[in-house]
């Protein structure tokens, strides 16, 4: 089995790893680089728990051939906080009870970040669309939608 070197930026810092043939980005991030924040839920693109940003856009790391991120910028939940300062989305998820088991949360956060980076004040429908590729089995989505709206500084439906 051959190993291929891949260099990319991970949460703003340079990363370099040797990847196996056909290894996916999720596996490389988790076991190669040691960033455990993206999660495996299906390996087939259906759950969204492995969502990461590549050049600012959400991608499913389980379906991304690792070598294709050569030279690109990858962001994960691990890089959301700045030092001890949590990202507004993280704060809002905590405040709004937007996680129960927490397994979908890193993927949800990245999908939400991609949205807010582009659309700082999204409508509720835009929020729903942005997380439509992410499954949560615990919360019933409403707290997550509320949290994302709250993070954008907008009133949520239920409290507003």
């Amino acid at each position: 089995m051959s190993k291929t070197p891949v260099q990319f930026s991970l949460n703003g810092s340079p990363a370099a790893v040797f990847v196996d043939d056909a290894q996916n980005l999720l596996d490389v991030l988790r076991r190669g680089v040691g960033d455990l924040s993206p999660k495996y839920g299906c390996g087939q693109g259906t759950c969204g728990s492995c969502t990461v940003l590549i050049d600012g856009e959400p991608h499913l790391s389980c379906l991304t051939l690792a070598e294709t991120v050569e030279g690109r910028a990858v962001e994960t939940t691990n890089g959301l906080a700045e030092g001890p300062q949590l990202h507004a989305l993280q704060e809002a998820f905590m405040e709004n009870f937007a996680a129960q088991c927490g397994y979908c949360t890193p993927g949800m956060l990245m999908a939400a970040k991609a949205l807010l980076d582009r659309t700082p004040r999204p409508s509720r429908e835009e929020v729903i669309e942005a997380i439509s590729g992410n499954i949560c089995r615990c919360t019933g989505y409403e707290p997550i939608i509320d949290a994302i709206l709250a993070a954008s500084g907008q009133p949520t439906r239920r409290t507003g």
Binding site: S37, T76, F93, G102
Partner: peptide, 10 residues
């Protein structure tokens, strides 16, 4: 939740 900090930081 007492465990939610871990959840939102992955």
């Amino acid at each position: 939740r007492q465990d939610i900090l871990g959840h939102v930081t992955g």
